[in-house]
Design a protein around this nucleic acid. Structure first.
Lengths: 116, 116
DNA sequence: ACGGTTGTACGATGGTTGTCGAAAGAGAGG
DNA sequence: CCTCTCTTTCGACAACCATCGTACAACCGT
């Protein structure tokens, strides 16, 4: 059994999702970057995200996202692959994730210039 | 000038909104209740929200929502009236607030029963 | 078996946050 | 003026959180 002694890698069921947990998970810039990346690519290995934090910090963010139901992680040999739970999120909170990612992309595209 | 010595009551401009701040503001149950109440009623006085916290705590939550651009507050004699900035939010983040409030209402309507 | 890669677990730390009570300001009405 | 109501400010406190370094575990080459 590959790497399963380490951590159960629990994923919440769809009807256990809490919108407030999802919002909290997405309110962090690093985590939103992870989600944004996954929204473009379907699945990525952990170390391949364009974020600038320590590996242990990245693990922490993955756990927050996973326990909120935003991402799903699976083992594959030495790597851990991460994917968006887009279908599950859409089943429980229709249109929410798309609206949020789109809005965030738009905000990044037109960042507010500081006045004066 | 009514009550203006107390606090400037600053509201951010539309192009200063930060989606991550909005998400953080909405990730608290008390604040989400405030928003949900305002989504039904257009404007309410501060003390008339169905939340169970101390007045000073309520003031804190109003500040968080106001500084994120979610609500607008105006003075009227002894009362402070609070309203959703629905148009401004929709101009900057189209569809986001409606999707979130709808999703939260749905979640409250069908809360997940704890397994076993 | 050994080293390299990948990611986790743990402990610590500084900052943020939700909560409250006590005190006080501002207005309305007597 | 005095009191009552509504809301804020301040200070405090416990809990949470993002971050990191270090150590370690699992896997994959060779």
């Amino acid at each position: 059994m590959p790497r399963s002694q380490r951590r159960a890698l629990t994923h919440p069921d769809v009807d256990e999702f809490d919108l407030l947990d999802v919002l909290h998970a997405l309110s962090d810039p690093t985590r939103m970057t992870i989600v944004r990346t996954l929204h473009a690519d379907p699945e990525r290995a952990c170390g391949t995200f364009p974020v600038d934090v320590a590996p242990s910090t990245l693990t922490h963010h993955f756990r927050v996202l996973r326990e909120a139901g935003v991402i799903r992680q699976r083992e594959d040999g030495n790597r851990r692959w991460t994917a968006l739970r887009l279908d599950d999120l859409d089943a429980r909170f229709p249109g929410v994730l798309d609206a949020l990612v789109t809005a965030y992309e738009r905000q990044l595209g037109a960042p507010s210039p500081q006045p004066q």
